[in-house]
Design a protein around this nucleic acid. Structure first.
Lengths: 313, 313
DNA sequence: GTTTTCTATAGGATATCCCTATATGTTATA
DNA sequence: TATAACATATAGGGATATCCTATAGAAAAC
C-alpha cells in the first residue's frame, strides 16, 4: 500500500515518536492518548508494510527505514506549514491576488487615484489590472480569469452582481474655435452629431454619448472614430469636432487646455455614466469586494459623486 | 482548523479537481465516486474555513486560494513520492544504511574480502563500518547505534542473536630467531607465557590466546602489551617474543615474512576462534542479516572454515 | 421537449479514530 | 523479593469519517 493514505497527523506522530523515543511521551506531545498512538503506529506500519520501530521490550528504536521516513516527514511538515499560510492569508482582508478588469475609458484616469492608497493600506495585495472593452471584460469575469470588473452600468449579466461606485459626469469637449465653445450654454439637444467624434465600436462611451442625442443615433455613420480617449482629445484640439468626455479624464490635462474648452451640458439631467463594480455572484471574497469598493469611493476626487450602498442584481 | 488534519488523499483530490475543473472527472481520476468526492471537497473547505472553488451552478471555478493551495499541494505530493521511495527501498534487499561493528582484530583483514563483492552485488547499500572492542560494540548494538556486530563467540548477550560465520584458526607467530621457530612442532602446552606478547586488555584475542595455555593464565602480568595486531606483529619480528595471530591477519604480509615464522599449533584441537554475526533479536531486517551473512561466507578465503547454518540464542 | 451531464443530498454499511480500563512486562527502590 | 513506577499492548465502545448506491435538481445539448 502506498503512502497516499497517510495523513499529516500520521507524519506528525511519527516524528514525535522518533524525537521522543517513546510512545507515551509522543502521545502527550501529539495530544492523544498512549493507546491511540500505539494503534496508530501499528496501523501506519501495516499500511506501509514496513517495520518503522524495533520494539525491544521496553524501548522503542527507530529502524533505519523509520529514521529515513521521519526525516522525509519533517520536510513535508514544513510544506504543510506553507498550506496553513495560504489558508491564513485567505482570511486576511485584501491579500493575495486580485484580478481586476477596467474599461479603457476609465482605467487610466481612475487607477492613479486608487493605487497609492491601496498599496499603502494593503501592501500584501497583488493587483492585476486588465484594460479592455466591456464585453471582453464580462467574458473574462464569467469565465473566471478576472475577479472584478469596473465598468459603466448597466451590465445586467446573469450570475454577475453589480455594486454602484460613483456617477461620472460627462463634459462637452470642444475646440476653442468651435461654435459651442462660446460663453453661452449648450444643451444636449444642440448636439447635431455631425461634428461629433467618437471612439470606435465596442466602447460603451460611444453608445452613451449617442444616447444623449438620441435623434441622431442612426446618423453616426461616416463619423470620425478614435481608438483611445487621448487620441480623441487630440482630434478635438485639432478642430476635428467635439465629443463628450467623462469627468475623470478631464481632470488635469493642462497641455491641451489652451485649445480645448470643457463645459457641462445644459439641462435638468446630470449627463454622465454610472460606474459599477461587478463580480461573479458566486465569488467568495465578499469582504474583499466591499473593502475594495469602499476604498475606491474614498479615493475619488470631488468631481464625481460617489454612491453609498447601491447594489444591483 | 489547521491543515494538519488533511490527508495526502485530500491534496490529491484537490489537485485533481483543479486540473480537471470538474468533480465528476476528478472522481474518476481519483477512483472514487462523484458523491464521495463532492462531500470530501465540502469537508476540506469547512475544515480550512475557506472556499476553494466557486460553484457557479454547473461549473467549478478554483478561487485564488484554491489555486494557490493546489500549487502547494502539487509540491507536497512530490514529497509524498519520496516517502514511497523510502518505503519501496525498505522492501529491497540490502539497500539503505547498514551499520556494522567489527572487532579490530578482524575488521581490517575481513573487510577487504567482503567489500568488493558487496558493492558489486548491492550497490544501493550504504555500509557504515565501525571498529572497536567487543564490549563497546555490544553496547552500541543493544543501544541501537549499530545494526550488526561481527565478533568472536561467545557473546551471549540477552536480546542479541548470534549467527555463526566461520572458524578462524590461530597461528603461532614467532621470530625466526626464537626457539619455537624450528622445524619441530610446537604444542599448546609448550607455550610458557613468558615470551608471549599480547594485545592490551579488552581485546578478546588476548583472552582467547591465554585460554589456549590455561596453566599460565594468571602469570600474564608484566607482559608486553600492544594496541594493534600490526604492532604486535612488528614486536614479534623484532624478537620481543611470540604471539597467536588469527588466520585472516596472517594472509599476505610478505614484508615481514622473512623475520616471522607462522606455524600451526600441534594438537588434536583446532585452535582458533569462532566468528559470529550478532544482531538485536528485534532487528527487523532478517533478510538483510541472512544475505549479509551468506555473502561473508561466500567471500572468505579457504584459510577459514565457514559455518553453514549454526545459530545461537 | 427530451436526454445528457453535472453537482448535491439521503441513507446505510464499514472503517477509523480516540477514549477509558486493564493486562503485561521492565526497571527502580525498599 | 516484593512493591511501586513506568512503558507498551490489548479490549471494548462511542463518535465520526469514508465511501457506496440511489436519487433529486438544474443547466446544456440535441
Amino acid at each position: 500500500m502506498s503512502a497516499k493514505n497517510l495523513s499529516f497527523r500520521d507524519l506528525q506522530c511519527l516524528v514525535a515518536i522518533c524525537d521522543s523515543g517513546s510512545i507515551s511521551k509522543a502521545a502527550d506531545a501529539c495530544a492523544i492518548s498512549q493507546p491511540s498512538l500505539s494503534e496508530r503506529l501499528k496501523r501506519i506500519e501495516s499500511q506501509l508494510g514496513v517495520e518503522l520501530f524495533e520494539r525491544n521490550k521496553r524501548s522503542l528504536l527507530p529502524s533505519s527505514t523509520g529514521e529515513a521516513l521521519a526525516a522525509k516527514a519533517r520536510e513535508l511538515l514544513v510544506g504543510v506549514g506553507a498550506i496553513d499560510e495560504v489558508v491564513a492569508a485567505a482570511h486576511k482582508p485584501l491579500s493575495g491576488t486580485l484580478r481586476v478588469g477596467v474599461i479603457s475609458t476609465l482605467g487610466p484616469y481612475l487607477m492613479p487615484y486608487i493605487l497609492p492608497q491601496l498599496r499603502k493600506q494593503y501592501p500584501e495585495l497583488e493587483l492585476i489590472i486588465h484594460e479592455d472593452l466591456t464585453d471582453a471584460l464580462i467574458t473574462e469575469l464569467t469565465g473566471g480569469s478576472l475577479d472584478i470588473v469596473i465598468a459603466a452600468a448597466p451590465l445586467e449579466v446573469p450570475g454577475v452582481r453589480e455594486i454602484g461606485l460613483f456617477h461620472e459626469p460627462f463634459f462637452l469637449a470642444v475646440s476653442k474655435l468651435h461654435k459651442f465653445a462660446g460663453p453661452h450654454s449648450t444643451a444636449a439637444a444642440d448636439l447635431d452629431g455631425k461634428d461629433m467624434v467618437l471612439l470606435e465600436d465596442g466602447h460603451c462611451l460611444s453608445d452613451q454619448a449617442l444616447d444623449i442625442c438620441p435623434a441622431k443615433r442612426r446618423t453616426n455613420k461616416n463619423r470620425l472614430h478614435s481608438m483611445s480617449l487621448e487620441t480623441l482629445r487630440h482630434m478635438v484640439a485639432a478642430g476635428a469636432g467635439y465629443t463628450l468626455l467623462p469627468s475623470l479624464s478631464v481632470g488635469n490635462k493642462p497641455s491641451l487646455s489652451k485649445l480645448i474648452s470643457y463645459k457641462k451640458l445644459d439641462g435638468k439631467r446630470q449627463y454622465g455614466r454610472q460606474i459599477v463594480l461587478a463580480h461573479r455572484s458566486s465569488f467568495a471574497r465578499k469582504t474583499d469586494v466591499h473593502l475594495f469598493s469602499q476604498l475606491i469611493r474614498d479615493c475619488l476626487p470631488d468631481s464625481v459623486e460617489t454612491i453609498l450602498t447601491s447594489t444591483r442584481h
